[in-house]
Nucleic acid binder design. Structure first.
Lengths: 201, 201
DNA sequence: CAGGTTATGGCGCGCTGTGCCATAAGTCCA
DNA sequence: TGGACTTATGGCACAGCGCGCCATAACCTG
């Protein structure tokens, strides 16, 4: 089983201590990606650099590219929380415009790191492919939120549209950001969301 | 080199005739996907069923999943043509709402086939991943069109937003379609585009 | 028949991701 | 101190993908 998962679940009642962690592996891997490129870096390279075996790497991440999304679970949780905490009389599109940048907020010292990550995700085809799973996650949360607000199922046309709009806004924001790095991502994100999310009605 | 490419380029001045074609391979492959599932079908299975070698398959398609997008080049061409032919005084968002369904139009006898394809693309993760390349194509065409109409570069915020809006509308339309197969895709597509593409201003 | 052209087949290779099982390194309890 | 239990790791084998390389088959033209 995945070592990190076990840690959280069971109340740490012993067992062999882990030699590494998901975040440690992710940091090492991303540095290698910057040096040699994503496809030129093999899982063996990462594992060796981290001092563990290839097999162990795949216990922390089920895919080489997954190291780029270590923060996703936390972001998803924040997103859900923001949506759940929003007042019921606030229009859902406004809630989304607020919640997304808040969920994606990172401390300023992670800025260059986030830029590199965005560059990989937007420009390297092999990485772009692996983003599909996270994209589905973002869509799903937004769609479910809008469906609940509108009292419909997740097969509602507006709810589906909203889910796709949220996702496309975050992607568009990152794309614009890479071409205008002097601006700040949260600002861009807000503008994109207001442009792309259809108004509640 | 890819056999089909050669056919179009050089004015057929001899050489060994091809044993198969991209469309023939695609049809055989998709039938196998329906029978056994995408991941349960190996490229060897497809090649064997088509009477060619595995190596030959990869000369027609660079990826197993690519057989699902044989029609993409034609759709892209139609999309570009529709956009180029639009009157200059017609608002760009209106042009897009018209051009996308026209580009994606298929004869009615392809309906069930298109449904199966959509199901694979939306529900099978491995297929979803490979869709990234086509997605980039759709976005690029739309973004370039809007940038030209607005007299900006492709780094313009509105142009980028439009590209992502077009793509998300087509994806949302297919998702909704799978849940409401009694409706017609072009109608859904138009509704989604009108909902998701920001108005020109 | 020679020479050019195009498609195919086969072989090998590196890499990804997975299942299986043995083993190391801790904790807890008798 | 020694056992039982728990958890992480390492190694190995394997199927599959996608690619590079080269030999060969099949068709054309002179």
């Amino acid at each position: 089983m995945a070592p990190s998962q076990q840690r959280r679940a069971g109340a740490d009642r012993g067992g062999r201590p882990a030699l590494t962690s998901a975040h440690a592996l992710a940091e090492i891997a991303q540095n290698l990606f910057l040096e040699k490129g994503f496809e030129e870096t093999s899982v063996d390279d990462i594992a060796t650099a981290a001092g563990v075996s290839r097999r162990t790497f795949f216990r922390y991440f089920s895919t080489k590219a997954d190291v780029l999304w270590v923060e996703s679970p936390a972001e998803f949780t924040r997103f859900r929380e923001e949506l759940a905490a929003a007042p019921l009389d606030e229009p859902y599109n406004q809630v989304l415009c607020r919640a997304v940048p808040q969920a994606l907020h990172h401390p300023p010292e992670h800025r260059t790191w986030a830029l590199h990550r965005a560059e990989l995700i937007l420009n390297v085809p092999a990485v772009q492919e692996k983003a599909a799973a996270r994209h589905a996650g973002w869509r799903r949360i937004a769609t479910e939120f809008v469906a609940e607000r509108r009292g419909t199922g997740v097969d509602d046309l507006v709810a589906i549209a909203a889910g796709h709009a949220v996702l496309s806004a975050t992607l568009a924001a990152h794309e614009y950001w890479l071409a205008h790095t002097e601006q700040e991502l949260p600002d861009i994100m807000t503008r994109m969301l207001e442009l792309l999310i259809p108004r509640a009605r």
